[in-house]
C-alpha cells in the first residue's frame, strides 16, 4: 500500500478519479431516472471527435473539446424537443458520426502521433496537476449547486412539466445541467476513455436504485458506490497490472450484480 502512494501519479489519479466519480454519480442520478442513459455516451463520442479535430489543427484538446461538447449537448437537448427524431436515435447518429470523424481525421493526418488507444480507453498517465485543479473546482461547483437546488433538481427530474408550472426555471437548469455534464464527460474521458466514461455516470445510480427506493438515499449511495468502485478498480488494476478504466467498469458491474442479487433475495 505504501508503495502505491509513493507513486505521485497514482495519488494524482486517485484524487482526480474520486472527485470525478462523485460528480459523475451526482449527475448520473437525474440522467438515469429521466431515462437519458445514452447521453453520456453521445457526449463522450463528440468529445473524442473534438479532441481529434483539435489535435489535427494543433489546438489545445481540452479547451477545444469542452465548448464543442457543450454545443453538442444543447443540440441533443433541442433534438429531443423535436418530435420528428426520437432522443435516442438523435444521440446514436451524433455519437457514431463524431467517433467516425475523429478516427478518420487522426488516420489521414500525417505527422501527428496520437495513441488512439489512450483516447478510446483512457490513460491514467495523462493526469496532471491541471486536472486536479479542474476537478476540485468542478466538484465544488457541482456540490454547491446540488445543495442549493436539491429540491428543484428532484422535481425537475421527477416531473419537468409540473416543475415548470410552479415556477422552476426549467430551461435554465437544463442548460446548466448540459454544461456540467459536458465538463464531467470531457474531464473523465482522459481517465476513463471515450468508450467507458459513460459507465461512471450510469452504473452507481443503477446499483443504488436496486437497494434504495427514496430519492435522497439513492443520491447519497450512488456517490458512495461510485467512490468505492473507483478506488477498488484503481487498486485492483495496480495490483494485477490490468487496464485501469476497464477494471473500474468491471468493479462497477460486479457491484451492480451483487446488489441485484441482494435485492432479489430480499424480495
Amino acid at each position: 500500500m505504501a508503495v502505491f502512494f509513493s507513486y505521485s501519479f497514482l495519488v494524482q489519479t486517485l484524487i482526480v478519479g474520486l472527485l470525478l466519480s462523485i460528480c459523475a454519480a451526482l449527475a448520473g442520478v437525474p440522467i438515469v431516472l429521466k431515462k437519458n442513459s445514452m447521453i453520456g455516451d453521445g457526449l463522450s463520442h463528440v468529445g473524442f471527435g473534438a479532441v481529434a479535430i483539435a489535435t489535427v489543427l494543433g489546438l489545445a484538446p481540452l479547451e477545444f473539446a469542452i465548448p464543442a461538447v457543450i454545443i453538442a449537448s444543447f443540440f441533443i437537448l433541442k433534438l429531443e424537443d423535436n418530435h420528428k427524431i426520437s432522443g435516442d436515435s438523435a444521440i446514436a447518429i451524433i455519437s457514431a458520426s463524431a467517433l467516425a470523424l475523429g478516427t478518420f481525421l487522426i488516420s489521414i493526418t500525417k505527422g501527428v502521433n496520437i495513441d488512439l488507444n489512450s483516447y478510446l480507453f483512457g490513460n491514467i498517465l495523462s493526469i496532471n496537476n491541471t486536472d486536479i485543479i479542474f476537478s476540485i473546482i468542478l466538484t465544488t461547483i457541482i456540490l454547491t449547486i446540488y445543495l442549493i437546488s436539491y429540491n428543484k433538481i428532484f422535481t425537475l427530474t421527477f416531473d419537468e412539466k409540473f416543475a415548470k408550472s410552479i415556477g422552476v426555471k426549467t430551461d435554465f437548469y437544463r442548460v446548466l445541467f448540459a454544461i456540467l455534464c459536458s465538463i464531467i464527460v470531457v474531464l473523465g474521458m482522459r481517465l476513463m476513455g471515450t468508450l467507458l466514461i459513460s459507465s461512471l455516470l450510469i452504473f452507481p445510480t443503477l446499483s443504488a436504485m436496486q437497494l434504495f427506493k427514496k430519492f435522497k438515499t439513492v443520491v447519497i449511495f450512488s456517490v458512495l458506490i461510485s467512490a468505492l468502485t473507483f478506488t477498488l478498480g484503481l487498486f485492483i488494476s495496480y495490483i494485477c497490472a490490468t487496464p485501469t478504466s476497464s477494471t473500474i467498469v468491471l468493479s462497477n458491474l460486479v457491484t451492480f450484480l451483487l446488489v441485484k442479487i441482494i435485492n432479489l433475495m430480499l424480495k
Partner: peptide, 15 residues
C-alpha cells in the same frame, strides 16, 4: 422512479 411519496408530495410546495 425511486422516490418516496412524501418527497413527491412535498415538492408541490416549491412554489
Amino acid at each position: 422512479f425511486t422516490a418516496s411519496v412524501f418527497e413527491i408530495v412535498l415538492s408541490g410546495t416549491l412554489n
